[in-house]
Simulated scan of single mutants.
Amino acid sequence: MGYLNTETLIKALDTAESTSDAVSLRRHTYEALWHTPGRAVVDVGCGTGRAVSELGAGAVGIDTDPTMLDAARARFPGIDVREADAAALPFADASVLGYRADKVYHVLPDPDAALAEARRVLAPGGRIVLVGQDWDAVVIESGLPAVTRRIVHARADTIEHPRIARSYRNLLLDHGFDDVTLTVHTAVFTEPGVRKLLTGHAEAALEAGAITAAEADAWLADQARRAETGRLLLVIPMFLAAATRPRPSAASR
């Protein structure tokens, strides 16, 4: 989402996170964390703090964007959110019981370093949940399918790790986590506010030279007509992986 400024991104996230699919997916992440109120959990890439607020006491949000953190504090007074990097969390070893990262790992410079840090701060038996979209598998209804394919792939190519979500299971296994599970959820967006994200896609493809200005204009006009008539459709596959930090074996104690 690098083609949106922070204010526009916040509005786009509000639209995306308010849908019934998004609410259901967040609930699945909390269940996968085995979370109960008061349980120490870190939400990495917390954005405007919605999940931190919903997780309640014991939850700490981490983000590198101070504007996002200011918005989180304004929206949910009293929540604990801090500016920090995913690869350098402000927690002691084995000090948290849950680690959640929602739509974060695709923009990290070093996902392996972030996972190593996750394992460091998680207590034995602690739970990790990773959620993310596959940028190369986005579905957008359009009267211009060939242009749409080029837009989707060109936008994906601007992301640091556009397909990392499909690798979550293997990454967790590679880092020694146990009880690894993977489910795929479908996020369906039909609200007019999604046009902000679609505009970002078209701008990225135009800048990359994947489409012409005329194709961008025609494609965005088609999306505008769909928004006006209730025909907008954006579908994003969301991968949810969960695992447990192993407890030390009796032989290693």
Rank of each mutant, 00 (worst) to 15 (best):
G2E: 07
G2L: 01
L4S: 10
T8I: 08
L9H: 04
I10M: 07
I10N: 02
K11T: 15
S18A: 14
S20D: 14
A22M: 05
S24P: 03
L25P: 02
R26P: 06
R26M: 09
T36Q: 15
G38F: 12
R39C: 15
D43I: 09
C46S: 13
R50I: 15
S53H: 12
S53R: 10
L55K: 10
L55M: 13
G56L: 12
G58C: 05
V60M: 03
V60F: 00
I62E: 07
D63R: 00
D65I: 01
P66N: 05
M68F: 08
L69M: 05
A71F: 04
A71K: 05
R73K: 05
R75Q: 10
V81W: 14
E83I: 14
D85A: 14
A86S: 13
Y99E: 00
R100K: 01
D102I: 06
V104N: 00
Y105I: 02
V107Y: 01
A114G: 01
A116L: 03
A116F: 00
A116K: 02
E117T: 04
R119Q: 09
A123Q: 04
R127W: 08
I128S: 02
Q133F: 04
D134H: 09
D134E: 13
A137F: 11
E141W: 04
G143V: 08
T148K: 14
I151W: 09
V152C: 07
H153M: 13
R163W: 02
R169P: 01
D174I: 04
H175G: 11
F177N: 03
D179E: 12
V184G: 11
T186W: 11
V188S: 14
K196H: 09
K196F: 13
K196C: 10
L197S: 13
L197P: 12
G200S: 11
H201P: 02
A202W: 02
L206T: 10
E207Q: 05
A210G: 01
T212G: 13
A213R: 15
E215S: 13
E215K: 15
E215I: 11
E215C: 08
A216W: 04
D217I: 11
D217Q: 08
D217F: 03
A218D: 08
L220R: 03
L220S: 01
D222T: 03
D222G: 03
Q223R: 11
E228V: 03
T229Q: 12
R231T: 07
P237N: 10
M238C: 08
F239S: 14
A243G: 06
T244S: 05
P246I: 01
A251D: 12
